[in-house]
Design a binder for these strands. Structure first.
Lengths: 353, 353
DNA sequence: TTTAGCACTCTATAGTATAGTGTGCTTAGC
DNA sequence: GCTAAGCACACTATACTATAGAGTGCTAAA
């Protein structure tokens, strides 16, 4: 059977209506739409065809139609009308983003919160690093008797520090010597490069401050390894409860629990090669718990080896047009913000507590 | 009417049973308990008395009894049997805690997660600072052309840093001069001490690196102000959905939303003068959304001017004995952990991204 | 090709009957 | 003066039935 223009129009109307009402859509409701000058019988025939083609489903014989996963897919790919963001919406998104954030994890939390607010759905945001960092520069500073501050600057221009307490005091010149040794031998190395042999060699040359070396190495390796990790935040989980398909507490709990348990960690993989906004309709989701749920995701650029992603989780019957529009605008605004040099303070280390 | 021993025993049994079953408790159920050698009629009389005294409530004429808020209060204060943690429980709690954590906010997240797991209820954890910090030491380090790393050590022994980018290069000796000036004039000051006049005076003496001063001051003041803030984490919100009293999605959503929106920020105030574990039964809660909900909280010591608190939110019909036992054990273990010096690495600044 | 008409299916809702649980009260026993 | 047994009464939860309403599919006519 061929998918005529009129069939597409009917399908779009069904999806639109179903998104609005969450109730199965009958033929009469379609005829009442403006721009639909056919009788309900005609629409019924078309709907019967669409059902046969797999785009619609019938909960039971005498109910209206509901879009199938394939129906949503077609809707998202071809039929959906672009949703235009109102000035109010863009303004509030922009305002929310402009608040400066200095630490990636805090930023991700904030972003997830805002996205969730903007879409009234649970939102995920994550920042993953591609390519590991190496150490660019070591510095050791005296900080009172028995205390030394280690400052490590990475190739990604992030700066981390650690307070080291010693049983004995070391002089400033001892530290200077050690710093020099560290900077000549231990910079520009991947975490695997910090072998016991290297450490031994450094300790032999490090002079009186040699006892510091193991602590320095341990901290550095740990830091480098953490560089490869992903920062993820989930926000607004409970907004899912507002959706009629989750009046069933058990169902809601299943989905929400899976959101919490980082079953989402495979989402970045899905986005790897994708560009722009990606929509995963129900069964297209890998995670079993999300088979009944749709995910909309989009990438944005943080710069400095960081790849950001924001996404939203909701019922398959979510307002894809609105959600994708907001998400895209969001991603764009974020990318722009990080491109502005005076705002791009992000990877500069900043410690709160 | 007097509250005889037997009445207390009946009340305790009713609360215990109701906690277990979440169903109104009838007189027959009580008689079937071991150690209850009275007929149902006698129990009925006692229950009628307890109802008259306000400790029990009747959903309707021919239903069993349910504890009132006053009933729970009495139960918590006097009747509750101490719950003994099993080895398994203490072990799993201890194991969970021993994982070292370096940053307060991350630690609070982790703690909230564990507490929620241990109690199967939503959990809150927070760390609030009493007494503001001041700057103990400034240090400026060159980090390649046009980049300077500012390291600030606070009186609390926390270390924070910031990468500053400059349009011009400054020499190491310029930075040394500036560091010295900063250390003589701007240490041991509260945030209000950083007046424009002081800043001007410092800039006059700072030599070629004077342009750095405004950035340094802004960052320092911001950091000091953040010291006073509270770190808070909520975890396991969706566990509330497992409780039968929250089968009603709307009710669950109301409570969960209030958990999210930091309506809990006044909880620390409640704990201020309290010692040990504190239980807030339903209407004793200040927050309107929690009137139907009980909160159990306890304090723990992080040291270094930080006060920790963990708490759990659940239906008034929660297992107070179990929850308070676990919470107290938790708090104790955490306090102990922070008291051990080799574990107490917490306030030593550590930056991830 | 479209549409009007109609019989049919299915659901949601209200109303009714019934079994079961629990109470309060009265009365009898210790 | 307690305690217990018995009984009428109250109320809920559950199943069952009837009914209205919405929507369909099919047929036949325009």
């Amino acid at each position: 059977m061929e998918l005529t223009e009129r069939k597409k129009k009917v399908l779009r109307s069904v999806v639109d209506l179903y998104i609005r009402t969450a109730e199965p859509v009958g033929s009469k409701a379609i005829t009442e739409l403006p721009d639909m000058n056919y009788s309900s019988a005609t629409i019924r025939n078309e709907m019967a065809d669409l059902t046969a083609m797999g785009y619609l489903e019938q909960p039971h014989t005498s109910a209206g139609r509901v879009p199938s996963a394939a129906g949503y897919r077609l809707y998202v790919d071809e039929l959906m009308q672009d949703y235009r963001l109102s000035m109010d919406e863009t303004n509030s998104i922009t305002a929310a983003i402009e608040e400066k954030m200095q630490r990636v994890d805090k930023l991700m939390e904030k972003v997830a919160k805002i996205v969730s607010q903007a879409t009234d759905l649970p939102a995920i945001s994550l920042a993953s690093r591609f390519g590991g960092a190496e150490v660019k520069h070591f510095e050791l500073i005296t900080a009172g008797p028995g205390s030394v501050i280690l400052v490590v600057m990475l190739t990604s221009d992030e700066v981390v520090n650690k307070l080291i307490r010693l049983p004995v005091s070391v002089t400033e010149s001892d530290l200077k010597l050690l710093s020099a040794v560290l900077n000549t031998t231990m910079t520009n190395l991947p975490p695997e490069g910090f072998t016991p042999e290297l450490m031994e060699r450094v300790m032999d040359n490090a002079g009186p401050a040699a006892s510091l070396v193991p602590v320095v190495v341990e901290f550095t390796v740990e830091t480098l390894q953490k560089q490869g990790s992903t920062n993820m935040a989930v926000a607004g989980q409970m907004r899912l409860l507002g959706q009629p398909e989750y009046r069933d507490v058990d169902k809601a709990q299943r989905v929400l629990t899976s959101l919490d348990e980082e079953a989402l960690s495979n989402l970045p993989a899905v986005m790897q090669n994708a560009n722009g906004t990606k929509v995963l309709v129900g069964p297209e989701n890998v995670a079993q718990e999300l088979k009944d749920t749709s995910v909309v995701m989009t990438k944005f650029d943080i710069g400095d080896g960081l790849q950001g992603m924001i996404g939203v989780v909701g019922p398959t019957r979510m307002d894809y047009a609105k959600v994708t529009a907001r998400l895209s605008y969001f991603a764009e605004s974020l990318s722009k913000m990080f491109a502005k040099p005076e705002q791009a303070q992000l990877p500069e280390g900043r410690e709160e507590e």
